[in-house]
């Protein structure tokens, strides 16, 4: 047997689908990547959360639950939770409602791939670029959108204030994501048989009734997956906040603590204050929370059951 190693197997004992001997060269590169950049770092991330690791000394001692205790008692952590929750709520609500409207409108009017391409474009532009463009558009002195808003009686300084920063960032990211989200929903709409609408129309159903009794129930599995993806992405907002609030003499997460979302706080603890243990503890909490959110959402939205069956 050993003599035939690396020889192409011939004859009756041919195993067409290989076993490990055929599989390992295919798997090796990706497995090394997975091991070094996903698996080991995950174990290490959990380990670090139980230490007081310091990046400069590159050393740390086991401190047990201390980082978690401090997290629970840390008002800045709870502030970050609150700010993030506020952002996620605003972002998801506006983005999802607009995306559904766009998807339904496209379903009615056009399957043009030019329209679909234009709608997708913002999603492909770097966050940093999008953030900078909007900082300029909303600039209190010269920004053209800020000027437009002043027609509606909104002071042009409004967007720079602590009350507006999270709604503004939610608005920017809604602009970036709504088209892409609409395309996902649009793809889901294509799976609903048109005959259902025809039958309903013959029975004299109104637009609203068709929406409520056909579109929404049959779209639910797609909508559930879209929501899981967008909610999880939303909790991880970072680039936009970092660039929009950190540039031009500002401090990331500012003004004050008003936009210090959880990612920005984790980043600040690690690289601004060199408290890698505390930073890791919050990252672990975020991981657990996001897993819970995913599970919970899929459960209540019953993503894997379609009413079409």
């Amino acid at each position: 047997m050993a003599a035939t190693t690396s020889e192409r197997p011939k004859g009756a004992k041919l195993n067409l689908y290989g076993g490990w001997r055929a599989a390992w060269p295919f798997l090796l590169p990706s497995f090394l990547g997975f091991l070094f950049f996903f698996l080991i770092p995950s174990v290490r991330g959990i380990y670090l959360s139980f230490t007081d690791w310091n990046l400069i000394a590159n050393d740390g001692d086991w401190v047990g639950m201390e980082n978690y205790d401090r997290m629970v008692d840390d008002p800045l952590f709870w502030n970050a939770v609150k700010v993030t929750a506020y952002y996620v709520t605003l972002n998801i609500v506006t983005q999802t409602i607009l995306a559904i409207m766009i998807a339904v409108a496209m379903d009615r009017l056009t399957k043009s791939s030019v329209v679909r391409s234009v709608i997708m474009l913002p999603y492909l532009i770097p966050n940093v670029v999008v953030a900078l463009i909007f900082v300029w558009l909303l600039n209190s002195n010269l920004g053209i959108i800020a000027d437009l808003f002043s027609f509606f009686g909104i002071d042009s300084n409004y967007f720079a204030g602590p009350d507006a920063v999270i709604p503004t960032i939610a608005g920017i990211n809604t602009w970036r994501h709504m088209g892409y989200t609409a395309l996902l929903i649009f793809a889901g709409l294509q799976t609903i048989p048109k005959s259902l609408y025809e039958a309903a129309a013959l029975d004299g159903a109104s637009e609203l009734q068709m929406m409520r009794n056909i579109t929404v129930p049959l779209l639910r599995p797609v909508l559930a997956l879209v929501l899981v993806i967008t909610v999880i992405g939303s909790f991880q907002v970072f680039d936009t906040v970092q660039v929009a609030t950190g540039g031009f003499g500002g401090r990331p997460g500012g003004p004050g603590d008003s936009s210090r979302v959880i990612y920005v706080y984790i980043y600040e603890l690690a690289f601004g204050r060199n408290e890698l243990g505390r930073s890791s503890a919050i990252a672990v909490a975020l991981l657990v929370f996001l897993m819970f959110v995913t599970f919970f959402q899929l459960k209540i939205l019953r993503a894997n059951e379609s009413d079409l069956a």
Binding site: S30, F34, F36, F37, F38, I40, P41, S42, R44, G45, L48, N58, I232, F235, Q236, F238, Y263, I266, Y267, A270, L276, S279, S280, A283, V284, L286, L287, L290, M291, T294
Partner: peptide
Amino acid sequence: YLTGMMIPPIFVLIPNLLL
């Protein structure tokens, strides 16, 4: 491999930096 999709990038950021 698929469970890797669940990992938020910031969770492995510091460990990957150490690497």
